[in-house]
Amino acid sequence: MNFWNNFAAKHPAAAKWVREGGLFVIVSNLITLFKYLLLQFLPKAFASLPVVDFGWPGIDITLFGETFKWNILGYDAAHGGLPYFCAYMVAMVIGECINFPIQRNFVFRSKGSLARQIGWYLLAFCLITCIVNSINCIWVAVAGLLVPDFIYNIGTTVLNGGISMVIFFFVNKIIFPEGEAAK
């Protein structure tokens, strides 16, 4: 504890980055684990929906002998289609509704405009979801051929959580700028 206090006194800006970065990683990983657990059960809640291609732009791609539809948003029928997309989005939205207030209030200690921060966070969530889903679409199609299910599920969770976490950290540094955070 003495080491940290000395470090924080000598390097306050670095200490703030270490504190925020460390807490951000811990909270983000816990939220990612929560989303993973939701995705173990939520697809059953949407099982009554038709398993149809649901995505955009739906470009046919073949990798490692597997042909699938590449989507920026959504999944083809072979990889869950509409029911999985609904479950995925519900898990992501619930996770972010928990993540935002924890990151804002506890990690970044922000006192800025809540409405503005929610707007930026929502925009970032939409962009990040599209980026991650476009990568995940390839992983879902190809990894299912190459690795056992439990590794595939771990990989999907790490891919979704890891990419989102890195992007959200830097977005949060913009959303919760220095002038709005508690010192």
Rank of each mutant, 00 (worst) to 15 (best):
V93R: 05
S134F: 12
I118A: 08
V90P: 00
A182W: 13
G80N: 04
A8I: 10
G95N: 02
N99D: 02
M165D: 06
I59F: 10
V90Q: 08
Q40F: 05
G112V: 04
C86F: 03
S28A: 15
M92H: 06
W56I: 11
R116G: 01
K183N: 14
N133F: 07
I131G: 07
V158N: 12
F106Y: 08
L127I: 06
H79Q: 09
N136P: 01
Y121H: 01
N105C: 02
E180G: 10
H79T: 05
L38R: 06
S48V: 14
P43M: 00
L159I: 13
A15P: 11
P50F: 15
F125T: 01
F85K: 05
Y88R: 04
L37I: 00
I138H: 05
F100D: 04
L122G: 06
V27C: 12
G65W: 00
L39N: 10
R19Q: 07
I154E: 11
F24D: 15
V90I: 07
I128C: 02
P43L: 00
G74A: 05
N99Q: 05
N172R: 08
N136Y: 08
L23T: 10
C97Y: 00
G162Q: 11
W56G: 03
L114G: 00
G81K: 00
C86G: 08
G58H: 14
A14K: 11
V51W: 00
A9W: 04
L146T: 11
G179K: 09
S164M: 03
A91M: 06
R109S: 03
G80Q: 03
V171I: 07
F106Q: 01
T67V: 08
I154C: 14
F3N: 12
F169Y: 15
C126V: 13
A14T: 09
P177L: 12
V52R: 07
T157P: 09
F85H: 13
F169Q: 07
V158S: 14
I61G: 09
R19T: 12
P101M: 10
S28P: 13
V27R: 02
K44Q: 09
Y75V: 02
F68L: 04
L114H: 05
N153M: 15
A77D: 02
S110C: 09
A182Q: 11
A13L: 09
G144A: 13
Q40I: 06
Y152E: 15
V158M: 12
G119W: 05
A47L: 08
F169T: 04
C86H: 09
F64Q: 05
I163C: 03
N71M: 03
F150Y: 15
